[in-house]
Simulated scan of single mutants.
Amino acid sequence: MNAELGPVEVYDLRPIREIVFQKLREAIIDGRIKKGEHLVESIVATKMSVSRTPVREALRQLEIEGLILNIPRKGAIVQGITKEDALDIYDLREVLEGLMARLACRNITEADINRLKGIIELMEEAINNENYDEFLVLHGEYNTIILNSSKNKRLQSTLKNLYEYLTGLRSISLFTKDRRMVALEEHKEIVYALEKKDEDHVETLTRMHIRKAKKAFLSNLE
């Protein structure tokens, strides 16, 4: 295992098992720990300067999430995010983000509409300057504003958990400049519908946006 996990920070007051789980989860999702790698309790514990007990508990949770597979006499093997996982995530996003947009339409403020418009302008600049990393950061800020405007804490928690899986998927679905330009136009239409308080239209546009992202993801895998 080559990922640089690093020791648990002494100032982090969360339970050790939670910290270990989150660090391993992030490393698997962002690809620092590769599919097929073995996670050995003793090695992980040494790297993170913790006992083996929280590592064992974290590995159990990772198995529940489907990110690792425990094989008898072989131990924990990283599964990562499979193509099937990705398609499941897109299907969930279509439903949940459609609801998110509908709820946001009822609650979003004029100030947040203006913030979204400003972010879209910056996203366009990032595309023109071929600053892909900046585009992804702005894309995340755009989603966060709409998500927070939904005012639904359960939905926010569910989508935030889902969004943690999206780093790798977005790097594929938004790989081409053409797709980023199309996505930008879709975002403009969504913001316009939010501004007009058109709940049905904003949900339809959002669901279409996710379906197109899913199609781009599949196309770029080929």
Results as ranks from 00 to 15, higher is better:
residue 44 V to C: 03
residue 128 N to H: 10
residue 160 K to W: 13
residue 93 R to M: 09
residue 24 L to K: 05
residue 197 K to N: 10
residue 163 Y to F: 15
residue 135 F to V: 00
residue 202 V to M: 06
residue 56 R to I: 04
residue 7 P to T: 13
residue 171 S to N: 14
residue 164 E to A: 06
residue 17 R to F: 04
residue 146 I to E: 06
residue 75 G to D: 04
residue 99 L to R: 14
residue 204 T to A: 11
residue 118 G to F: 10
residue 13 L to R: 15
residue 17 R to C: 14
residue 209 H to F: 02
residue 213 A to Y: 01
residue 206 T to C: 05
residue 185 E to I: 00
residue 161 N to L: 10
residue 102 R to C: 07
residue 170 R to M: 01
residue 115 R to S: 07
residue 73 R to T: 05
residue 33 I to N: 05
residue 161 N to E: 04
residue 196 K to H: 11
residue 168 G to N: 03
residue 206 T to G: 11
residue 30 D to R: 13
residue 114 N to L: 10
residue 191 V to W: 05
residue 166 L to D: 04
residue 46 T to R: 15
residue 40 V to F: 10
residue 94 E to H: 05
residue 189 E to R: 10
residue 159 L to E: 01
residue 211 R to E: 11
residue 46 T to S: 14
residue 35 K to P: 00
residue 211 R to L: 09
residue 45 A to P: 10
residue 175 F to W: 11
residue 117 K to M: 08
residue 202 V to E: 04
residue 192 Y to A: 00
residue 39 L to T: 10
residue 220 N to M: 14
residue 201 H to Q: 03
residue 215 K to H: 08
residue 103 L to H: 03
residue 179 R to S: 14
residue 24 L to M: 03
residue 195 E to K: 04
residue 85 D to V: 07
residue 183 A to Q: 14
residue 211 R to K: 14
residue 121 E to F: 12
residue 157 S to I: 14
residue 156 Q to W: 02
residue 4 E to C: 06
residue 71 I to L: 15
residue 37 E to A: 08
residue 220 N to G: 13
residue 151 K to R: 15
residue 182 V to D: 02
residue 176 T to P: 03
residue 143 N to W: 12
residue 129 N to M: 14
residue 174 L to K: 01
residue 158 T to H: 11
residue 88 D to C: 09
residue 102 R to G: 06
residue 222 E to K: 13
residue 143 N to D: 08
residue 47 K to F: 06
residue 140 G to D: 08
residue 101 A to K: 12
residue 147 L to I: 05
residue 194 L to V: 04
residue 65 E to M: 11
residue 44 V to Y: 02
residue 180 R to M: 12
residue 77 I to M: 02
residue 40 V to K: 07
residue 76 A to F: 08
residue 103 L to K: 06
residue 166 L to N: 04
residue 68 I to A: 03
residue 101 A to Y: 11
residue 7 P to M: 04
residue 176 T to S: 11
residue 149 S to F: 02
residue 78 V to N: 04
residue 208 M to H: 05
residue 164 E to M: 15
residue 37 E to T: 06
residue 72 P to F: 08
residue 208 M to W: 01
residue 97 E to W: 03
residue 33 I to C: 09
residue 136 L to V: 08
residue 207 R to L: 08
residue 212 K to F: 15
residue 10 V to K: 09
residue 178 D to T: 09
residue 129 N to R: 13
residue 3 A to P: 03
residue 14 R to N: 12
residue 38 H to N: 05
residue 218 L to P: 12
residue 24 L to P: 00
residue 198 D to W: 10
residue 37 E to G: 01
residue 138 L to K: 06
residue 120 I to H: 09
residue 15 P to N: 11
residue 12 D to A: 03
residue 182 V to G: 01
residue 135 F to A: 03
residue 197 K to Q: 11
residue 76 A to C: 07
residue 149 S to L: 04
residue 34 K to H: 15
residue 52 R to D: 08
residue 34 K to C: 05
residue 12 D to Y: 07
residue 146 I to A: 06
residue 83 K to V: 15
residue 23 K to N: 12
residue 78 V to Q: 12
residue 27 A to S: 02
residue 132 Y to E: 12
residue 36 G to Q: 14
